[in-house]
């Protein structure tokens, strides 16, 4: 049995659902799924991981007193070595973007981020390049293999198993020259774009910061995340972390709603893999209208309040 390491992430004490899709993608007869859980009480996670076929949970405990990417990456490398793991899969999430390249650098191992397809036996993956304009097939060689998966490319399927939990204490080297002063959270990032199933984004058509409330009002009913075009960000209406596109977040939701967004090539680069795209725009000739699944030629200031009302009355 080849052990496959899964780097598990949590949000609000719960395992991120995209991790279950990752486990599903990694599962095979000849493999053992080993969940690596860093500085989070692993016992709470055990049952959820077992449901998706994990048979070992490594409960990594570092002395870092909270988030520290340098220490966490070193701990993951040590846990991989202890457990004979040469293949590690994580998400291309904010945490994954910090930890996976640090792990790969330490091991001098190949790493491909944002994989949309992974063949663990052939060490071959597909990922988008040139801002989503091409799909590259990349083969990796080496003694270790690190993969960053795009969230939501594989739907989670249960496969119940029983897991053992192993404690793995880790003490960091002193004098690394890297120190965490603090982590500040303002609570606004409750839903991270890259892992959201539904995203409603606004652009120049929103006209100001206050009007983004129209998007947040709809999003609340759907547990959706709110995104933005670069124009909305550059105008200071919303923070940069909400920017979707080539120089923003790349998203892969089930539904993407583009509201008052023209659909520039750089915006498409961030959302073109969305399953269903719905565009709302006053201009029937906007680029987004020619490359979406549904379009509404209309004024967002009419449509959004009506949509909010309709969503509020949906029975679920």
């Amino acid at each position: 049995m080849q052990p496959i390491g899964l780097l598990i992430e949590f949000k609000g004490g719960q395992i991120k659902p995209a991790n279950f899709g990752m486990a599903t993608a990694a599962r095979a007869e000849n493999r053992q799924l080993v969940a690596l859980v860093v500085d989070t009480p692993a016992n709470d996670a055990k049952a959820a991981l077992e449901a998706y076929g994990v048979t070992r949970v490594v409960n990594i405990r570092t002395d870092s007193n909270g988030w520290n990417p340098a220490v966490h990456a070193a701990a993951v490398v040590a846990a991989m070595q202890e457990n004979g793991i040469t293949t590690l899969i994580g998400l291309t999430s904010p945490t994954g973007r910090e930890l996976l390249p640090r792990v790969a650098a330490r091991l001098d191992a190949p790493l491909v981020m944002d994989c949309i397809d992974i063949d663990l036996d052939a060490h071959r993956v597909k990922t988008s390049q040139y801002s989503g304009k091409t799909i590259a097939t990349i083969s990796m060689t080496g003694s270790h293999f690190i993969y960053g998966m795009r969230a939501n490319v594989v739907a989670p399927e249960e496969a119940p198993a029983a897991a053992e939990v192993i404690d793995f204490p880790f003490a960091a080297d002193q004098g690394s020259g890297f120190e965490v002063i603090e982590t500040r959270t303002d609570g606004s990032g409750s839903q991270h774009l890259a892992e959201s199933d539904i995203i409603i984004s606004g652009g120049r058509g929103l006209k100001n910061a206050e009007n983004f409330k129209l998007l947040f009002d709809c999003a609340r009913h759907l547990n959706a995340a709110v995104g933005a075009s670069r124009v909305a960000v550059d105008n200071g209406w919303v923070p940069y972390a909400m920017q979707v596109g080539q120089t923003g977040v790349k998203v892969n939701p089930k539904v993407y709603m583009a509201v008052g967004i023209s659909g520039s090539i750089q915006h498409f680069a961030g959302m073109k893999t969305a399953k269903t795209v719905i565009a709302i725009n006053t201009d029937a000739k906007a680029a987004i209208m020619a490359n979406c699944d549904y379009f509404v030629v209309g004024d967002l200031f009419d449509i959004l309040p009506a949509l909010e009302k309709a969503l509020a009355s949906v029975k679920r």
Binding site: E98, G177, E179, V180, R184, T185, G187, G189, A241
Partner: peptide, 13 residues
Amino acid sequence: EREAGTIDVYRMA
């Protein structure tokens, strides 16, 4: 900026 609303402050030698 780790993600929307989360800022990490680090000191590096």
